[in-house]
Structures are given as structure tokens and as C-alpha cells.
Amino acid sequence: MAFTLPKESYSGKVLSLTFGKDDKAVTIGGEDTLPFLSFEGSIPNRPAIAYEIQDSPIDDWPETLKAVYKDVSDDPVKWARYCQDELKAQAIALRLVSTHPDRENRSADDAAKTVSEVLSAVETPLIILGSNHVEKDSEVLVKVSEAASGHNCVIGKAQEGNYKTIVAAALAHNHKLIAMSELDINLAKQLNILITQMGFDKSRLITDPMCSALGYGLEYTYSVMERIRLAALMQNDATMQPPILGDVGMYVWKTKETMAEESDVPEWGAIEERGIAWESITATSMIMAGANLLIMRHPKAVEVVKKIIDELI
């Protein structure tokens, strides 16, 4: 008797989402099967990778990573152009860290100005992130949504404590939105419900279940993402069908393994290679678990992950 491959069929489907404009626009999601199981269903879009840039000096990044962006990181416009022109970025994630009250505490208007400048300098689709300060973000993201009106950006992150104003702004200015909860699948679902109950269509949402780096709770993120995907596909849970974000870089590049000098831990090997490996492995794990969009920092890690995606798809 001939062997028939046992196949799972799924009742649900991940929603597809497009951000950016014209021929540069990026589409993610749309699959009706688990990650890379293309023999069981269709995977119309591969996971996308955005390069992270910041609006303030990157003093807290490891030297090996800072070196990559040393000529451009003093200016988000230059940096964005570098990502677009030199690194051929598919998308750019501008993190407005300078607005954090414990950092430079720059105003929402300042942030909006930065966003406008970046948007007029590049055509690459833009993800605009706040500083992850609940109160400040609800001010900043409202202003930057307005400044980015018409550019079909991704705005984030809306959290339980500030989603109302941010959702309203994304709704008014036609952006996509990242909904973030802290490693809790039930709260991730709840936040998506609350946001859609405000009239924000679920097809414009991205779920960020919160990332973590290899060795620092990666398995929790992996498990939450995996269960989100299973709920979306097997239980046809509409609230869990938006694409998933893995905000990888910011969690990886503060770990001991990416920062410790070779002189302190010679047995860990070359520091740059170590960091790249750490980011590649973390990012690869996320796309295995179901992430559709990654935010990463090191070009060499991006290259590795792209190659893995090419081989798996």
C-alpha cells in the first residue's frame, strides 16, 4: 500500500496585513497552516524583517553593534536612508526612545517632527514605536500618527493601560496597530477584543505577545506565540488571527552574551559573532513559533534569518 502523508487541516486562517505604500508596501500573514508547513496549506507571504533605528544616541548598545551604524546613528534620517539604500531594508522600525521620561524626555511634537523627516527621506514602510512608557506613549503615538497620516504605517505599541487613545489615533489616521501584552495569552486575546470593540478592525492589528531573548525566557514567548497560532488555526479564534510581531533586537542586545568582553569570558568566543548568533537564533525561534514580522538590529543576523526563511519556504 502506498504511503500517504498524514496531514492536518485547519479551520482558521491568519489575517493578512499590508503596511507602507505603493510598490514598497509589505504584506505579512495570510497563511492557513502552521509556520513553514506549506505541504498542509498555503503560506502566501514570508515573514518580514524590519531594521530597528532610534531617535537618540545608542549608548546602551554593545560596541560591536554600535560600530555597524557609527556613521549614521546620530541622525534618524541618515540612519533610515542607510537602512534603505545600503542594507536594502524591507521595512524600518523607528523607536522613539528619546521621548521616555527617564531619557531625554522629548516632547510628542519633537517626535512627530522626527517622524515627518524620516517619512520624507525614505520610501521604505515604517513602523513607529514609542518608548514603551505607558503614559508618555499615549501622548507621543497620537501626535506621530497624525504626522504620519496617509503613509499607512504600523504604530505601536498599544497596551492595556493606554490603548484607547492610541487606537483612536490609528483609526483616525488609517494606520496599522501593534497590540502588546506581557507574555500572557489570555490578556493578549482580551486586548485584541477590547481594541476591536472600539471599532478597530482586526485585520489591521498585529499581536505582540512580548518577545524575550534566548536564555532569558525565550521559551515563554515561543509557547505563547505557538498557542496563539493554534487558537487561530485549529479553534478558528478570530481574535487570535492577526499576524504576530517578534520585537527581537531590543531583547537580544542587552543580554550578557552579547555584551561580555572576550577578555572576561574567552571561552565564549568572539563577541561580535556571539551577538549575531544570539539574535539569529532568537529570531529564527520566533518565526518557527509563528511570528510574521521581526524587528532586528544586526545586518548579519538579518542575513542569516533571511537565508533560513529562503530555505524553509
Partner: peptide, 12 residues
């Protein structure tokens, strides 16, 4: 275990 819990599950 057929539905994922969320506080608003009754509304879905």
C-alpha cells in the same frame, strides 16, 4: 479547552 479564555469571552 475548545475556546481560549479572555475576560470578554462571553461577548465573542
Amino acid at each position: 479547552g475548545n475556546t481560549l479564555y479572555a475576560h470578554s469571552y462571553l461577548e465573542m
